[in-house]
């Protein structure tokens, strides 16, 4: 068994505001092997982005903090306890990130070449300016930007959204990090551009052999892209497994609901696309019960009293749901009519 490059243990992240503590991530543990792709899926506001930002302690000027007892072991070093200067070394060269919105994620007053070179020169103080420039041109070429020698002097406003996301990807891969985090990399793009950017990411994944963490709420793109899937809800991981386990044999009602809400081929126009009723819970609440219980079609009395522990179904597959308890009634996963299941 290969060594894990990343091991997250009991990660909790809270935002402190005037009205109280928002517990965005609650006791999350997971690991990542070299070259592996992990997808984190879930609705908006269930802690996916906060989880991955915590991996780089990248909270900007928000009032977020990683709570005591959390461990983020990257090559055995704990990022949660790291000194600022060591953290700067990990960011960019150890772990890098592709952000959601390419329209706002690039500095508007710096040309794209400078922005790519900045990371290269930060982590390699010996490299000359012209070498860094040559590398930046190579990177732009690699991410599929035509005539990179000219484009290197462009400013972000001169590029389209898809181009900017390619530049973002070039920035992320510039220092050949071990882990690339892609935080909803295609959400802000047009559907056709989405496909191109995903294709690019897949190519790069094969070429660079880096580990990927893909954060998305779009289960449709996850299957092609990832090796393992983690489903998050209300700051917790509710189900995890290989992509086959999650797609073929999901056990958590929330995963069922997510899978049922993917648009399918053959869905008739009169059929309504399934959607989960209600909204995720307020993360300021302590949530002693199962957080999904109020929206769950199979909720039992116990679900509203105590939170379920994660139960392992196989070496890779696990879920936190009372339905898996030996005393629970056996429930079949609902398959919705009106469309054929692609997977």
């Amino acid at each position: 068994m290969e060594e894990n490059i990343l091991e997250v243990k009991n990660l909790s992240v809270s935002f402190f505001s005037y009205i109280g503590e928002v517990r965005a991530v609650r006791d999350v543990s997971f690991s990542l092997k070299p070259g592996e792709t992990l997808a984190i899926v879930g609705e908006s506001g269930c802690g996916k982005t906060v989880t991955v930002k915590a991996l780089m302690r990248l909270f900007g000027n928000s009032a977020a903090s990683i709570k005591e007892g959390s461990q983020i072991l990257f090559h055995g070093q704990d990022i949660a306890q790291m000194k600022k200067t060591d953290l700067y070394n990990v960011r960019g060269s150890g772990i890098s990130m592709i952000f959601q919105d390419p329209m706002t994620s690039l500095n508007p007053t710096m040309n794209v070449g400078e922005q790519i070179m900045e990371g290269i020169r930060t982590h390699n103080s010996k490299i000359s300016r012209s070498d860094a420039r040559a590398r930046a041109i190579k990177l732009l070429d690699l991410v599929g930007i035509p005539s990179p020698e000219e484009r290197i002097a462009s400013y972000p406003h001169q590029l389209s959204g898809g181009m900017r996301q390619r530049v973002m990807i070039a920035i992320a891969i510039a220092c050949e990090p071990d882990i690339i985090i892609a935080d909803e990399p295609t959400t802000a793009l047009d559907v056709t551009i989405q496909a191109q950017v995903l294709e690019l990411l897949r190519e790069l994944k094969d070429k660079l052999n880096t580990a990927f963490i893909l954060v998305t709420h779009d289960l449709g793109i996850v299957f092609d892209f990832s090796d393992r899937i983690q489903v998050m809800y209300a700051g917790r991981i509710v189900e995890r497994g290989t992509k086959y386990e999650i797609y073929k044999n999901p056990v958590h009602p929330y995963t069922w609901a997510l899978l049922n809400s993917i648009p399918r081929r053959g869905l008739q126009s009169k059929d309504e696309l399934y959607s989960i009723k209600g909204t995720p819970p307020d993360l300021m609440l302590p949530l002693e019960c199962c957080p999904f219980a109020p929206r769950c079609d199979y909720a039992m009395p116990i679900c509203k009293e105590r939170a379920p522990q994660e139960i392992a179904l196989s070496e890779t597959h696990g879920a936190a749901c009372w339905l898996l308890h030996s005393m629970a009634p056996k429930v079949q996963r609902p398959v919705h009519t009106g469309g054929s299941d692609d997977e």
Partner: peptide, 18 residues
């Protein structure tokens, strides 16, 4: 400081001063 591109810069490993 609240803009996304500041996060991008930080994610590259650039120090706060820079």
């Amino acid at each position: 400081l609240g803009q996304d591109y500041i996060l991008t810069a930080e994610s590259k490993g650039v120090s706060s001063f820079n």
